[in-house]
């Protein structure tokens, strides 16, 4: 898809997210909406995958380390054709394959189960290492939250990625600057981010995370990296696209009621 098409697709994804959460009555809109443009650019432009052949060995791998943002992943998978769109409305229901946090045993297109923060980047390192070992042209992407960077395991993984020169690995930080208890800097400061990753031997790219042109350029730059893994630090707005959710920590893990769902959908028309 080109940028104009991606913009349309991103809006659709945002609508899917709101509808899913409105129906489910619980879930995480803030981080799903902040990551929507990053995810749309990835799934509908950059990622080499075959939704009708989810286990195709040559596919690029994606790991959603911030598993609570399952709604944006499910929407991207459904919009890509992994499963019917109608299934999105079963989110978080008993018996649904769309668990509150992604379960790879239940849903096609999810590489590994996540939900406990800090774990996904290690898996991505293993995937990238496995691809290198077999000399496979496979890229590995991992989306992490900024609050998630407070987990020690993230830095264990970061250290090992550069140690093994995993230039096929790209970590995307959804830097919306909010976590459950407030501003990231106030809860537990993680900044400066680019310097930290650089000190750990990574290539760091800083972008505006809602600018699809910058997003695609960053993914392309990551592909050109030699010897070094790449981190894309994407400045985003939590709840992006829905005015009353934007930059509000309160919308981290709360679903909109009927009225607010309608209001949000109207804004996303």
């Amino acid at each position: 898809m080109d940028i104009a098409q991606l913009k349309v697709q991103a809006k659709k994804i945002r609508r899917d997210i709101i509808k899913m959460l409105g129906e489910a009555g619980s879930g995480h809109p803030g981080g799903s909406l902040s990551a929507t443009d990053l995810m749309t650019g990835l799934f509908f432009n950059t990622l080499r995958h075959r939704p009708k052949e989810p286990h195709w060995p040559g596919r690029d791998r994606f790991v959603l380390s911030k598993g609570h943002c399952a709604p944006v992943l499910y929407a991207c998978l459904a919009e890509s054709g992994y499963f019917p769109l109608a299934q999105l409305l079963t989110l978080r229901q008993l018996g649904s394959c769309l668990q509150g946090h992604p379960s790879c045993q239940d849903v096609s297109g999810v590489e590994v189960s996540t939900g406990s923060l800090g774990m996904g980047l290690s898996v991505a390192v293993g995937l990238a290492l496995g691809a290198k070992l077999d000399q496979k042209d496979v890229r590995v992407f991992c989306l992490v939250g900024d609050g998630e960077l407070q987990e020690g395991q993230i830095w264990e993984a970061t250290m090992s990625a550069s140690h093994y020169r995993l230039d096929n690995l790209c970590c995307i930080v959804d830097n919306n600057d909010l976590q459950i208890d407030g501003r990231v800097k106030e809860v537990m400061n993680i900044y400066p981010l680019a310097d930290k990753f650089k000190a750990f031997g990574w290539q760091a790219i800083e972008i505006e995370g809602h600018d699809l042109k910058q997003i695609l350029a960053a993914y392309a730059a990551a592909a050109r990296s030699k010897e070094k893994p790449t981190v894309i630090i994407a400045r985003t707005v939590k709840g992006k696209g829905v005015s009353f959710m934007e930059d509000q920590e309160d919308w981290h893990g709360k679903a909109p009621n009927k009225e607010l769902t309608a209001k949000a959908l109207k804004e996303l028309e």
Binding site: V112, A124, V125, G126, L127, L129, G130, L133, Q153
Partner: peptide
Amino acid sequence: GVAAGLSLMG
């Protein structure tokens, strides 16, 4: 975690 990723690559 890394072992998990390697297992996913077969």
